[in-house]
Structure formats: structure tokens, C-alpha cells
């Protein structure tokens, strides 16, 4: 056997390269983290809508997935902890033609930012909120979150989490969201299709993407990276239009994925325009 032939590598541009700030790569996400897969699904969805990239804006809060706004090559805003949604609301109401995507994590959106989430949903604010739910505060080293499963270990609940997590689709639905779906990062096509639908949906759309944090959640809960993915595969079922009340996450039972809510209802900017701009030009 002679020496192996040296293959000359021809760099093939990544199909999403035009949407990524390539000069900022490599990203900060750890090996085994699912945020990159959710981010890829989001970019794929944006591309598939065919909407001009200049008519998008991405807003993130603080945390691992909050760094998403720093890698996407569109007008993008990395704001304060928990405040991505009110920032996005300001953009949407001041320039309604913008397609505003909030890309952030469970800690950011549902603990410190929970109040903003329910009110944006109530208003049917025409923005798309993508939550990378890794059940933990990853960036700060694995503290218990509003999504951490009951009895799960975290750096602030080494004896098991005494609290119970939010059922995020139920919360979104109850607050008034008009599009609600849940996937895992493993269901990358379904996730991308769902995000595309959410972007095209007029009104408040919410997509929860379950995503592993092997470093700060898996390690303490005896879950190797591949175990988590296996669970996403084996212990989930797709049940569109499932009752949001049944969507609590317990991997000992089957975790339900799918699209649960898709309602047509005028969005906040449409209502405001009808009640204020159309009437004020008449009077």
C-alpha cells in the first residue's frame, strides 16, 4: 500500500452562509449543545419563506441561545436579560413591515422575561418567539430554571428541584398566542417547517425547541449527550392539535410534539392601525 492520495479540499459554501456572520465563527456553543441545530432550523426557515432578509430583524436576550442574534447576518439585537420581547415589540409597532424573530432561551423568556411573554401573547403581537429550552441556566453554569424538571439536579438544587416546571405551550395558549408548536432539535425538518409557518403566521407565534445541555444539565443528571438525543427520538410522540393541558414534559411518559394552536385573529398592529390610523385620517 502506498501513501494515501492527498485529496485537495474544495471549500463548498454552506447553504446558509449568506445568513451567518462568518467572521464571527466559531460560535461559543459547547460540543453536544443543541442551540446550533435550532439556530440552523431557524435560518433554514427564514430562507424558505423567500422574504427579503432586510425585512427581518432578530432580537435575543441573554444566555447561550441569546447569542443567536450575534451570528445571524441581518439587523440583529442582543438586548438585556429577559427583554428581547419588549424590544421586538418596539420594532414591530414602529415598523410593522418588519418580520421580527425573538431567538432566546427558557431562562431568559420565561423567568426574568415571563411577564413580557404573556403580554405579547395576549396582544397577539405579530412576532415569532423561538425558545431553545434546555431546562437549565446554561451560560451561568447550570442553575435551576423555570423549566427544570421536578427533582432534577442543578447547581442550585443538588438535592433535586423542589419546584415544578412550566408547561410552555399551555402558558402560551392560555396567554393568547395564536400559533404554538413544540419540537426537539433532533426533529430538524419539522422544526424548520414549523418556524417557517410561525414566521408566515400573522400574530403571536411560539415555537418551543427542546435542546440538550450536556455540560450543565446532562452531567448532573446522568445523561450523556447521545442519551438525551435517544430520548428525543424514543420517548416523544407527534400529536398535532393535542390539548395544551397535556403537554407537561416528563420523559418517563411520552413527550408530545407537534403543532397545537393555529388560530386566525387580527394582530396588534392590525388592530391599532384600524382603530387609530384609519379613523384619525377620516376625522
Amino acid at each position: 500500500m502506498g501513501s494515501p492520495a492527498v485529496k485537495k479540499e474544495v471549500p463548498v459554501p454552506h447553504p446558509l452562509e449568506d445568513l451567518v456572520r462568518m467572521e464571527r465563527i466559531p460560535h461559543i456553543w459547547c460540543s453536544g449543545c443543541g442551540t446550533g441545530s435550532v439556530f440552523t432550523a431557524c435560518l433554514t426557515a427564514m430562507k424558505n419563506t423567500g422574504i427579503n432578509y432586510d425585512d427581518f430583524a432578530m432580537v435575543s436576550g441573554i444566555g447561550c441561545s441569546g447569542r443567536g442574534a450575534g451570528y445571524i447576518n441581518i439587523d440583529s439585537f442582543h438586548t438585556t436579560h429577559g427583554r428581547a420581547i419588549p424590544f421586538a415589540t418596539g420594532i414591530k409597532m414602529a415598523r410593522p413591515e418588519t418580520n421580527v424573530i425573538v431567538f432566546s432561551g427558557d431562562g431568559d423568556l420565561f423567568a426574568i422575561g415571563g411577564n413580557h411573554f404573556i403580554h405579547a401573547a395576549r396582544r397577539n403581537m405579530d412576532i415569532t418567539v423561538i425558545c431553545v429550552n434546555n431546562f437549565i441556566y446554561g451560560m451561568t453554569g447550570g442553575q435551576a430554571a423555570a423549566t427544570t424538571p421536578h427533582e432534577a439536579k442543578s447547581s442550585t438544587s443538588m438535592g433535586g428541584n423542589p419546584e415544578s416546571p412550566f408547561n410552555l405551550p399551555l402558558l402560551a395558549y392560555a396567554a393568547g398566542a395564536t400559533y404554538v408548536a413544540r419540537w426537539t432539535m433532533l426533529h430538524s425538518r419539522d422544526l424548520a417547517d414549523s418556524i417557517e409557518e410561525a414566521i408566515n403566521h400573522k400574530g403571536f407565534s411560539f415555537v418551543e425547541a427542546l435542546s440538550p445541555c450536556p455540560i450543565n444539565y446532562g452531567r448532573r443528571n446522568k445523561q450523556k449527550p447521545l442519551d438525551t438525543l435517544r430520548e428525543y427520538h424514543a420517548n416523544t410522540i407527534i400529536k398535532n392539535n393535542a390539548d395544551p393541558g397535556e403537554l407537561g414534559i416528563d420523559f418517563k411518559q411520552k413527550v408530545i410534539l407537534g403543532k397545537f394552536v393555529d388560530i386566525e385573529k387580527p394582530s396588534h398592529d392590525e388592530q391599532y392601525h384600524r382603530l387609530y390610523h384609519e379613523t384619525s385620517t377620516k376625522s
Binding site: 439585537f77 424590544f87 420594532i91 414591530k92 414602529a94 418588519t98
Partner: peptide, 9 residues
């Protein structure tokens, strides 16, 4: 926060 988002439009 909303007025910062608005300002960037």
C-alpha cells in the same frame, strides 16, 4: 425597552 427597539427603526 420598547422605545429602544422603536428607535432602531
Amino acid at each position: 425597552t420598547s422605545i429602544l427597539g422603536g428607535a432602531w427603526t
